[in-house]
């Protein structure tokens, strides 16, 4: 706390003790969160023998890239990767466009019906029809087993609408709009040439939030998709990582039972790293914007 730094009055002993406890606890938290992540990465760069024998503690043991070569040789992982990139890219585009299309009008004080529409949105946060009616709607629309099933049904997140609406309300002055209107500027033109260019930060937040969600989603794919060639990466990960079905194409030059098991385990570590790569690369950038987004959404409602 800045306060403590400028503190001229001698700090009581109990305060110091509390601060030390806080530092110790937070240091322990830091280690507890970091260690599993380091362990995963280190294991992925170790040899199958070291992984299966549990010799990896902190750093890679018997450095090898066998896990990665096995992962990269699997055509299904490539296909899943490609599909996920498609769902993420296209889905984010649809989501961001629709979110702005609803959040912007709702941010206008002179937009008739906005109170009613806001209640309509809030109600969907509190009550939903449940899984089966949701599934039946998608089915009746003929979206089952098509790529649209992953792009449309979850396209708008109400929370994101609130965040965007708050941003528009706070950053784009109503007076500016009125002045533009006087000069004969239409709503659409104002949105395109003034409001959107002013809203780059919120668009970045929306893109990142939707992109991460799309990359990590698996539930809709699980219930809506049947053809394996449409599967996003997460569904393929589920088969390999959780249902333990590793096909033999990944088991090159592994002969003994034990080597096989080691390879299977190693493969999982490498796959975890590979599949988290896009988000990992974006992380430093993402986290800054995420924090901003969460703060807009929470503090200014």
């Amino acid at each position: 706390m800045a306060m403590a730094a400028s503190n001229k009055i001698r700090e009581p002993l109990s305060d110091k003790a509390l601060l030390i406890v806080i530092y110790v606890v937070l240091f322990a938290v830091l280690i507890a969160v970091l260690y599993p992540l380091i362990y995963i990465v280190s294991s992925s760069f170790s040899s199958p023998q070291a992984v299966v024998a549990g010799r990896v503690w902190l750093f890679p043991v018997e450095f090898s890239l066998k896990g990665y070569t096995a992962v990269l040789q699997n055509p299904r992982i490539w296909a899943g990767y490609g599909n996920s990139i498609f769902y993420m890219g296209f889905g984010t585009l649809i989501s961001v466009a629709l979110t702005i299309a609803i959040a912007y009008p709702l941010s206008k004080r002179t937009f008739y019906g906005r109170t009613f529409l806001m209640y309509l949105l809030i109600a969907t946060m509190i009550f939903s029809g449940g899984l089966i009616p949701y599934y039946l709607v998608v089915k009746n629309l003929g979206l089952i087993d098509t790529r649209w099933a992953l792009l449309l049904p979850q396209a708008i997140a109400v929370w994101q609408v609130f965040i965007a609406r708050t941003f528009f309300q706070e950053t784009i002055p109503e007076e500016l709009n009125e002045a533009a209107e006087m000069d004969g500027c239409s709503d659409l033109r104002f949105l395109r040439s003034i409001a959107l260019p002013l809203s780059k930060p919120i668009i970045a937040v929306l893109v990142l939030m939707y992109a991460v969600t799309a990359w990590n989603a698996y539930f809709d794919a699980l219930i809506f998709l049947k053809s394996a060639d449409l599967y996003p990466l997460q569904l393929i990960l589920r088969e390999i990582l959780i249902q333990n079905s590793v096909d033999n194409s990944m088991m090159v030059d592994v002969r003994t039972m034990e080597a096989r098991q080691g390879m299977k385990d190693l493969l999982k570590f490498s796959l975890i790293v590979v599949s988290s790569l896009p988000v990992l690369i974006l992380y430093p950038f993402v986290q800054k914007h995420f924090v901003k987004g969460v703060m807009i959404g929470s503090l200014k409602g």
């Binding site: 206008k108 939903s128 709503d187």
Partner: peptide
């Protein structure tokens, strides 16, 4: 604001289709 009503029509359709029709479906 007629233009804004056109802009909002699509997302509103989304909410009706994927949030409110399922509620009728219960």
């Amino acid at each position: 604001h007629w233009q804004l009503y056109i802009v909002i029509a699509l997302p509103i359709t989304y909410f009706i289709l994927f949030k409110y029709v399922p509620i009728l479906g219960v």
